[in-house]
């Protein structure tokens, strides 16, 4: 067991690759932060736009959401990275990843936000409207807050699982964590870099995964 342990985690190699992996880790964090920022903002904006009930617009939103939910993220990424240049649209790998994951998160979070908006009781709308607030004011001051609060558990879950997909960036050679680990592993012909990368992922996502369950069970009790 000790031998195997040493094989998967060789201290010397770990120390040598740590700076590279840390660099990759920072890129992963950046990709995640940008995805969450753009994805959730766009998702919320789309859900709000949908509340106005403008049929042609809503058909567009639902179609966008459906397509982004139907296609695997990797397929979208590959299309953006390899197909768009054929039409003279060039996006570098880093931003292609951010764009892909933001669109995917936007689609999934739009559905979640929308579910929240529709589950706010009609009386809340009427309370606001009856005091002279406009539709937009009622949406933003009264309905949205309650909608978002209601959907925090599924939203957290989905955001975490989509954010983990930043690892896909390694496929288009963005030097994020997994990419760095793979190339270091090839260099040393030893799995230690992968183990270290796994530990990085574990350190970030395991607490989030546990946290999201906490949030969920706290909400479940409230209901």
């Amino acid at each position: 067991m000790g031998e195997i342990g040493k094989f998967f985690f060789d201290g010397t190699i770990a120390a040598a690759v740590l700076p590279f992996l840390f660099e990759g880790f920072l890129v992963t964090l950046q990709l995640s932060a940008l995805t969450i920022l753009f994805g959730l903002s766009l998702g919320l904006a789309l859900a709000c736009a949908r509340a106005y009930g403008i049929t042609p617009l809503n058909v567009l939103i639902v179609t966008f959401v459906d397509i982004l939910r139907s296609l695997p993220a990797l397929v979208i990424l590959i299309c953006i990275y390899f197909v768009l240049p054929e039409y003279e649209i060039r996006i570098d790998a880093y931003w292609a990843t951010v764009l892909t994951l933001s669109l995917v998160l936007a689609a999934f979070s739009e559905e979640i936000f929308w579910a929240g908006i529709t589950s706010v009781s009609k009386g809340q709308w009427e309370g606001g409207l009856s005091t002279g607030l406009t539709f937009t004011q009622t949406l933003f001051y009264i309905v949205l807050y309650q909608a978002v609060q209601m959907v925090i558990p599924p939203l957290t879950n989905k955001t975490i699982s989509i954010t983990k997909n930043t690892a896909l960036a390694s496929v288009v050679s963005v030097s994020e964590l997994l990419n760095q680990a793979s190339s270091q592993q090839a260099l040393y012909a030893n799995p230690t870099p992968l183990t270290v990368a796994a530990l990085f992922y574990l350190a970030v996502f395991a607490p989030l995964v546990v946290l999201s369950r906490r949030i969920e069970s706290r909400y479940a009790v409230k209901r």
Binding site: I4, F7, F8, S161, K164, N165, T166, A167, L168, S170, V171, L178, A181, S182, Q185, N190, P191, L194, T195, A197, A198, Y201, L202, F205, A206, L208, V209, V210
Partner: peptide
């Protein structure tokens, strides 16, 4: 549950493909 949910699926795949053979 938490261990395997914490990894991006691609990391698990790469691990199974490129680390397990060393064993």
């Amino acid at each position: 549950i938490d261990f395997f949910r914490a990894f991006p699926p691609l990391v698990l795949i790469i691990f199974v493909f490129y680390a397990l053979p060393f064993l």
